[in-house]
Nucleic acid binder design. Structure first.
Lengths: 216, 216
DNA sequence: AATAAATCGTACCGTACGGTACGGTTCTGT
DNA sequence: ACAGAACCGTACCGTACGGTACGATTTATT
C-alpha cells in the first residue's frame, strides 16, 4: 500500500527530498526520475525513500501532493464590486492561470501524469486534477457567481460559461507548452492574452446596460 | 541515424507492423510499447524492426508519420458560400476537430509525445505538430479566410481569431482527455459543443448585417 | 551517558528492456 | 531452377532500474 497520501503533511526532510525530486523531474523528465537519482540528489538513502513513500508511484503521488500544498488557495472578492473591478478580477485570474500553467513544475507534473494516463486507475492524473485543478476552478466559479449575483454577467450553466472562459484564455496554449513548443512559453504575451480573453468573454456574457440596474 | 522519415512511404508489411505497434500503444501506453512486444504482436523479428526504423525512437517517429499519412487533408470550400453555409462549415470543422482529438490513436500519440517532450530536441512532439496539426490549422485558416473574403466575418489577425475559435471549441477538453478523465470522452456531446462554440464564435466575429453587403 | 530509533551509503538481486547475432525459411529476380 | 536477399524466430548480451538488506552513523529519548 502506497503510503498515506491523504495526510499531505511532510516532514521538513521529506519536503527537501521532494523538492530535489521535482528538480530532477523538471530537468530531465520522467526518465531522469530514478529512485537512485533522487536518493543521490537529495543525499538520502533509497531505503528511506521506500519507507516514506512506499514505492516509486507513491513518490510520484507525493510529489504532486507536495507541489499542490505549496499553492495557496485564493479567496478574493468579499468587498463590493462594480463592473470595472469585476473585469480587473477576471483579467487577474486569466493572467494567473496562464502563469501557473506555464510554470516549469506544473508542466513537468502534467507531462508525468499524462504519460502515465494510459495505465489503469489513472491515480496520478486524478490526483493532479483533484489537487491542482479544483483550486483554480473554485476560484473562477466563485468569481463568476459573484458577477452573476451582482448582475454584471448573465448565464444559465455556470460550468459551461466557466469552461468557455477557460478556453478563451488558454486556447491550445497548454497542449503546445506540454509538447515543448518553444514559442508557446512567452510570458511577455500573457498580459495581452489575458486582456483579450476577458474582452471577448465579456462581449459574450456581460449583461446589457439596461439589465445591470435591476431585475430580469 | 534514425532511418529516413522524410519519405513517409511504408511497405505494406511495414504498415501492418506499425498498425500493430499503434494498437499496442493505445492498449497499454508507452510502457507497453517494447520492441519485443511489437515484434511478437506483428509476427516479425526484432532485427527487421531495427533494420526498418533504426532504433526505438525511429519506430515511434514512424508510427506518428504513418498515422498522419492516414488522415487525408480536406480541401472543402470552392463553391459559393452564404452565411448559413459558412456557419455549417464551421460547425463541421468543430465537430471533426473534437472527434479527431478524442480518437484513441490521437490521444495515445499525444501522450507519447508529451511524455517525451522534456528530452532535448523534442523530435516526436515537433513531428506530431508538423504532421498532425498543420492539416487542421490550414483547413481552418482557409475556411476563415474564405469567410473574411466574402465579408461574413471580420478580423485583423487571422492566427489570433483561429486560436480563439480553437479555444471556444476545445476548451480544456483535450488536456482532460489526455489525463484520462472518464467523463471527458463523451462523443455524444460533441455535436452540441460544436454548435455552441460556433454560435459564440460568430457572436464575436460575424460581420454585422450592414457590413455584409458591401465594403468597409 | 546510554539506549533506541531513524537515517545514510553502499552493495546486492532479479528482471526487463534495447540492441545484436545467427541459423533456418520464405520470397524474389533471372 | 537456382542464387541471393529479405525475413522470421530465438537466443544472447549488457545495462539500467526498482526494490531489499545491512552495517555504520547520526539523532532523539530518558
Amino acid at each position: 500500500m502506497t503510503a498515506r497520501i491523504s495526510d499531505d503533511e511532510f516532514t521538513p526532510r521529506q519536503s527537501a527530498v521532494l523538492e530535489c525530486a521535482l528538480e530532477l523531474l523538471v530537468a530531465g523528465g520522467e526518465k531522469a526520475l530514478t529512485t537512485a537519482g533522487v536518493a543521490r540528489a537529495a543525499s538520502c538513502s533509497k531505503e528511506s525513500l521506500y519507507k516514506w513513500f512506499g514505492d516509486r508511484d507513491g513518490l510520484l503521488a507525493a510529489m504532486i501532493a507536495y507541489q499542490a500544498s505549496k499553492v495557496r488557495a485564493f479567496s478574493d472578492d468579499g468587498g463590493m464590486m462594480d463592473a470595472a473591478r469585476f473585469r480587473a478580477h477576471l483579467v487577474d485570474f486569466a493572467h494567473d492561470l496562464l502563469q501557473v500553467l506555464a510554470g516549469d513544475v506544473s508542466l513537468a507534473l502534467n507531462r508525468l501524469a499524462i504519460g502515465q494516463a494510459s495505465r489503469e486507475g489513472n491515480r496520478l492524473a486524478r490526483l493532479l486534477i483533484e489537487r491542482g485543478r479544483r483550486r483554480i476552478d473554485s476560484r473562477a466559479c466563485a468569481l463568476l457567481e459573484a458577477g452573476m449575483r451582482r448582475g454584471l454577467i448573465r448565464y444559465e450553466d455556470r460550468d459551461d460559461v466557466y469552461h468557455t472562459l477557460y478556453g478563451l484564455i488558454v486556447r491550445d496554449l497548454h497542449v503546445r507548452m506540454l509538447l515543448g513548443e518553444e514559442g508557446a512559453r512567452r510570458p511577455i504575451h500573457f498580459a495581452d492574452q489575458a486582456e483579450r480573453a476577458v474582452e471577448r468573454f465579456l462581449a459574450l456574457f456581460a449583461a446589457r446596460e439596461e439589465e445591470r440596474a435591476g431585475g430580469i
